[in-house]
């Protein structure tokens, strides 16, 4: 089984990297872009998990306890296959 976890800075936290990327995009003349946020994506392979429910609870714990710093970040995830 494979899961994808996306970790993002909370909306209330300034993302200086996203801002710099936005500036670069704007300097190329893409005038429609009004904001950029940079996230992190983790693809996690699981083996021996009984069902999608068990996978979900395992991935949720991993995301909460390891992949995310709850002070500044939040996460979402999906089970891919």
């Amino acid at each position: 089984m494979r899961a994808r976890v996306i970790v993002s800075l909370k909306r209330t936290v300034l993302d200086p990297q996203g801002k710099a990327i936005h500036h670069a995009i704007a300097s190329l003349g893409f005038k429609t872009v009004v904001g950029v946020r940079q996230d992190k994506v983790f693809e996690i392979d699981l083996n021996g998990v009984q069902d999608a429910g068990a996978a979900r609870s395992e991935i949720e714990r991993i995301a909460r306890e390891v992949l995310t710093n709850p002070v500044i970040e939040e996460f979402s995830f999906e089970i891919l296959e």
Binding site: P16, Q17, N69, V71, I72
Partner: peptide, 17 residues
């Protein structure tokens, strides 16, 4: 210390990158 929760808050990327 911040990551461990022994101190509050977090250290983020410098404003000037």
């Amino acid at each position: 210390l911040c990551e461990s929760g022994l101190l509050p808050g977090a250290l983020m990327r410098n404003r000037g990158l």
